[in-house]
Amino acid sequence: MSAPARALIALFALGWALLLAAADMDYGLAPEKIADDTWVLTGRSEDFSFTNGGNIVNTAFIVTQAGVLVIDSGPSRAYGEQLRRAIARITRQPVVRVINTHHHPDHFLGNQAFAPDTLAALPGTIHGIHTEGGSFNDNMYRLAGDWMAGTEPVAPIHPLAAGPLELGGHQFELIALEGHTGADLAILDRSTGVLFAGDLVFHDRAPTTPHARLPAWQASLDTLEALPFRHLVPGHGPVANDAGPIRQTRAWLGWLDRTLRQAADEGLDMTEALALPLPAEFRRLAVVDAEYRRSVGQLYPALEQQTLRTGKARE
């Protein structure tokens, strides 16, 4: 057999192996109906891993008379495709809108599975996907491996503005907030009383802070708590029927902000700030140790810098 022929056979074998591997990449998505026309897919309360394939996020869809509205598309192309098939098992209505609540990878990297014309987000989110989507995607390959096969970042083309949105008999309210990132969209379905809070709200899972501005985030939580909702879909963690997850997120962020400011004011080195004990009330939050460590890395350098003064140069 010639060398090119052997190479060709090897290539086919490799192709089959990849296809077979891809067949195992099943997220097991099981939409749960939480209100009229409204389904939620609850991710695991974990860190990204080769085991969960990035499915640590909540996504949702609302089936209206004018088509399906999808809220967040998941962490990978495979997730987006499996989400689309899960929707098709429940309704024959087409997906007419896919909204990304913010620009973090687990909320938009499934966009490829949907028609480009359906994709929409706040302008700040679109900008974030354009500027950081590539590096997020690279990082997800490192953290979730083969589950990411074929995934590329796709930025929505439709900018959203805050205000009412009517779709097939559902009265949605788009609420433009910030604090978790520079642009966080919450969506209230006034017809069903469901509030989709995106990552402004975490439930029984420690919040992530790579782009956080804590005071703005706290103000956004106040806005959310004042809304007339009956069901609350957090970005991560189980669905709730009260404001408990909002208060839980506020309590963690408040403690984090106070603790790190005080540590910086007292002159603690970052390794000392990392060693501070976590209060017992937060032990129930999933991955709290890892998120605290990440938050110190993300927030402490700016806080400690605020405590230092620029000295005069000696002549």
Binding site: G267, D269, E304, L308, R309, T310, G311
Partner: peptide, 20 residues
């Protein structure tokens, strides 16, 4: 080369200097 810094008294005596 700009230096920012601060000196803290330590509870157990002595001082801590942090500088960037």
């Amino acid at each position: 080369g700009e230096v920012s810094s601060r000196v803290w008294p330590k509870k157990e005596g002595g001082e801590r200097i942090r500088l960037r």
